[in-house]
């Protein structure tokens, strides 16, 4: 994970599986809740992904203490299995500014190189996102950092 320019956050990751599988794992509502979870104790309770351009996404998470939050998104472009473009915001509970996300899956040996490029409206929003928005359910980590501090 790194920042680029004034408003972008870029995440890259290699996966052993081919782009077709990684793309599906990002789009198939039967697969997404198996991995897109965040810290221990959180589960995805709602996973709607209409899977077409112009389609809507809604993901909701809940933890064992009864805390919950959700994101909504619209799908802007799909080029299976290599590209997903969507725009999302989190509800904490007020909506965060729109985060424009382009996710690329490129063949990388027998596997896939994923590049996720998030573009925020301005650098203040990016700073906020790095600080609070990106991992809503980070109470555990907060607690850990409190101990470190």
């Amino acid at each position: 994970m790194k920042t680029e320019g004034d408003t972008q956050i870029v995440i890259t990751r290699h996966f052993a599986a081919p782009p077709e599988a990684v793309y599906r794992a990002h789009m198939d509502p039967a697969i997404i809740p198996q991995w897109l979870l965040g810290p221990d104790g959180w589960t995805m309770t709602v996973c709607i992904n209409e899977g077409k351009v112009g389609g809507k996404i809604r993901y909701e998470w809940r933890n064992d203490k009864g805390h919950s939050f959700h994101i909504t998104a619209e799908i802007l472009a799909l080029e299976p299995p290599r590209r997903i473009v969507h725009v999302e915001r989190m509800f904490l509970p007020d909506p965060t500014p729109d985060n424009h996300v382009e996710t690329l899956f490129e063949p990388d040996g027998a596997g896939t190189l994923m590049t996720m490029r998030m573009t925020l409206p301005d650098e203040k929003t990016r700073a906020m996102m790095l600080k609070t928005g990106m991992e809503r359910g980070m109470e555990m980590s907060y607690a850990r950092l409190d101990k470190l501090a």
Partner: peptide
């Protein structure tokens, strides 16, 4: 953590 879970799902 998410992506290592995804590794398992993909496997």
């Amino acid at each position: 953590r998410n992506y290592s879970r995804l590794d398992d799902v993909l496997a």
